[in-house]
């Protein structure tokens, strides 16, 4: 049985802030900060947006593209995020209700820093492959927070994408998935704390680079491939610099990662990052295109996927929902004051 992507949808909030504006507040050269990170603007959620609303918008776009799929045939919904609005009360049930998939289904929220969305795709692949459900939905979405003045404030942004996983009318077959996981404390947030902490330089080599290259090389070996066998590649993108460097280390060119790299334009959407990058690739993909995907979640682990776009893509109603390029077009820029208000950084009276 071929298991893969039957549909997808991505959403990014409309507001943006630029690194020079953040730097202006903290007495830092924001422009060169942005240049170093390769982040030229980041998305900002409106005060009435959160992971529930972002995941819902992405999931509705996903369903708009498969009008023949009955939402009641969705047997599982997993929403991966590190910014679920409730500590107790799943995001997934609200999204399930909003796409009318309830009640004969299972649902859960997933957490694994920035790779909770791809972990959801793997879980859905298992359920579909085992014949337990006809369709599973995996969503990665975040409205991440960086502490004021911290380097993360220049990157942490908002967005998400949804994937319908099934075995019929698959537009992109997932040939294989595998993971590389270790206990690595590079980035964390304790319960009840508003902002995460990170291990500074420790987040690079022993964390991001080690896990992504290990998972990627395991995939190359398992499939007997090299970077040259793929048309496109998508890597986790906490900034623009890391995925560009890891792509080069693995032998991928700038052309292969161009569509999958959105962070320079929207910032780091955490659990949304790889799902959104893959969505932008699928917006441009044609039958036969092979796609290499490797996510990364702090703590730490990487999920790798080897994907081939099928002939079914030609029948797929991709135009029933806006492409990501359209979703990201025409942003509204905000200054730091509005940003601070939107993100709840201003102490309000009771």
């Amino acid at each position: 049985m071929d298991v893969g992507i039957v549909s997808y949808g991505g959403y990014v909030p409309r507001y943006r802030i630029k690194p020079e504006e953040i730097g202006r507040i903290w007495g830092v050269d924001g422009k060169s900060m942005g240049k170093g990170l390769m982040i030229y603007q980041k998305s900002v959620p409106s005060p009435d947006e959160d992971v529930v609303t972002i995941a819902t918008e992405a999931a509705r776009y996903m369903m708009d593209r498969v009008p023949d799929v009955d939402p009641k045939d969705i047997g599982a919904i997993y929403v991966g995020s590190e910014s679920h609005p409730y500590a107790v009360k799943p995001t997934a049930t609200i999204v399930a209700e909003a796409i009318e998939a309830t009640p004969a289904m299972t649902a859960a929220d997933m957490e694994f820093a920035c790779k909770a969305g791809t972990a959801g795709i793997q879980a859905c692949m298992g359920l579909v492959g085992a014949g337990m459900v006809k369709y599973g939905v995996a969503i990665g979405a975040d409205t991440s927070q960086g502490a004021p003045g911290d380097a993360l404030e220049y990157s942490a942004s908002a967005g998400g994408a949804a994937y319908l996983i099934g075995s019929e009318k698959v537009i992109a077959k997932i040939n294989k998935t595998l993971s590389f996981t270790t206990d690595t404390p590079d980035f964390w947030r304790r319960e009840g704390q508003p902002y995460p902490k990170h291990g500074g330089r420790f987040t690079g080599e022993p964390a991001y680079f080690k896990h992504i290259t290990s998972a990627a090389k395991m995939m190359f070996e398992a499939m007997g491939t090299t970077a040259a066998d793929y048309k496109y590649a998508v890597f986790h993108q906490p900034n623009g610099k890391f995925p560009t460097r890891v792509a080069k280390q693995l032998g991928f060119s700038d052309e292969q990662i161009q569509y999958g790299l959105l962070t320079p334009n929207i910032g780091n959407t955490y659990s949304g990052a790889v799902p959104l990058g893959l969505a932008n690739v699928l917006d441009h993909a044609e039958p036969g295109d092979r796609i290499f995907v490797t996510s990364y979640g702090s703590g730490a682990g990487s999920d790798a996927f080897d994907i081939t776009v099928t002939d079914e893509m030609a029948n797929y109603r991709r135009d029933n929902a806006p492409t990501l390029e359209k979703v990201m077009a025409d942003p509204i820029y905000v200054d730091y004051g509005i940003y601070a208000k939107f993100k709840g950084k201003i102490l309000m009276p009771e």
Binding site: S46, D48, E49, V52, T53, T56, E57, A98
Partner: peptide
């Protein structure tokens, strides 16, 4: 003006 309904926090 053309508009569409979305879900938001009320």
């Amino acid at each position: 003006m053309r508009v569409r309904a979305v879900m938001r926090k009320l």
